[in-house]
């Protein structure tokens, strides 16, 4: 069961997905998709039950939008570079005080390579909050990729993206998902933009029930 505080948003659910490839969770607005994403990423605790991983999860997420106003002095380079630094919970009292870098190469090289991979070459010095919706989403995908994660959750990636941007962003997401071992979980109310058949669809109904539809 998932929700906030005493408010149950959806559930109970019982389903499993296998690692790797593109998985899509679809459902109408307000049915609990984003709450599910936050619960999956351990940003909020489940109200009951638990999420069991057969791999050691190292998740990143691409939110609908960053909590930054337009005048925030944060460049595209800053956002992607900050994604490189993380530390697993070691249980030590000093945990979190010296995060390690997820890549061995110099940070600048890794960031510039990743920006080029997501089609943001030459935009590293632009302010993140002044980019278009599609460009911001690409920068956030680059941030997730530099972390060397094995699970990337994209929350409504097409929100605020124009038609032209939808096509190229959809192609980028599916290309990345098909050519890597990373589990991509795309959460969307409208899956028409996905140009390929995903590995599976998780359908959420307005009443919060879930059904799993593996692709053939």
């Amino acid at each position: 069961m998932i929700g906030h505080g005493n408010n149950t948003v959806a559930g109970p659910w019982n389903f499993s997905v296998s690692a790797g490839g593109l998985n899509v969770m679809r459902g109408p607005n307000g049915c609990g998709k984003s709450t599910f994403a936050r619960t999956l990423l351990n940003l909020i605790p489940p109200l009951s039950g638990r999420i069991r991983w057969n791999i050691r999860p190292h998740c990143r997420w691409v939110p609908q939008q960053l909590p930054l106003t337009e005048d925030y002095p944060v460049s595209v380079f800053d956002i992607v570079e900050l994604g490189m630094w993380d530390t697993p919970d070691s249980g030590s009292p000093l945990w979190g005080l010296r995060p390690g870098k997820s890549q061995d190469k110099p940070a600048k090289q890794v960031v510039l390579e990743m920006l080029s991979r997501v089609g943001l070459e030459g935009m590293e010095n632009r302010r993140i909050a002044r980019l278009s919706g599609g460009e911001q989403r690409r920068a956030l995908i680059a941030r997730a990729l530099v972390a060397d994660a094995n699970c990337i959750v994209l929350d409504e990636p097409m929100n605020g993206v124009d038609q032209e941007g939808r096509e190229s962003l959809g192609k980028l997401v599916t290309d990345l998902a098909e050519n890597s071992e990373i589990l991509f979980l795309v959460i969307t109310h409208d899956a028409d933009w996905i140009p390929v058949q995903p590995r599976c669809y998780l359908d959420l109904s307005a009443t919060g029930e879930v059904s799993l539809e593996p692709s053939s």
Binding site: V74, G83, G96
Partner: peptide
């Protein structure tokens, strides 16, 4: 600096990066 910046600008990303 990176930890201070990240926890200042994006708490959810900081939490995912293991920064309480």
């Amino acid at each position: 600096r990176r930890e201070l910046w990240l926890t200042a600008i994006d708490r959810e990303q900081a939490a995912l990066s293991g920064l309480p």
